[in-house]
Amino acid sequence: MVQKLDNLMESPSQTAGPYVHIGCTPNFLGNAGIYPVDLGASAIREGAKGEIITITGHVRDGSGMIMRDAMIESWQPDAEGLFPSANETRGKADPNVLGWCRFAADFDSGDWTLRTVKPGPVPHIQGMMAPHISLWIVARGINIGLQTRIYFEDEAEANARCPILNRIEHRARVNTLLAKKTGDGTYRFDIVLQGEDETVFFDL
């Protein structure tokens, strides 16, 4: 026998299920009257510094079906790369950048939209991480929330040096993490859970 470690195990994940909106986006669902607004309805306030961008996308499953029941949360720094987090030690982030946003796929089209500022690069032990927005995706049939990141196709130089993107062995798959520019300040980012063009998911 050896000494016992006193670490606890993390609570095991369970699917968010089809009714996640009841708890997380009740007003979006139509269950008004409990909370005045849904939490995380916007990533920024008016006056946020930096380039305002709108990213639209959908989530597809392994059979090619667009999912109407996915919910996504995003987390990002401000345009200077500072997080609006209580534990950000490098400086004070733009007070108009909330950083965290929560949005569900539209019940009809399956599209989701994130309006935010383009984030700045963030330091890492092995260099600078290219501008990115972290995503966490839950839905019926997803047993543990999926972590991925939105990078930007128009940040080629920063992307080429990003230590996290450089962890991806199959280089062709990096493309699945790049938001595609569709216009002035607009991007498209579709997420594929399984199969051909499967999005890269992380364990970070």
Binding site: S85, H124, R149, E198, L204
Partner: peptide, 20 residues
Amino acid sequence: TRAPSRPLVATSSTLSEETG
């Protein structure tokens, strides 16, 4: 049909996961 078929890209957490 909702499970990724490819391995997760795993590495230590970064400031993006350590802040919130």
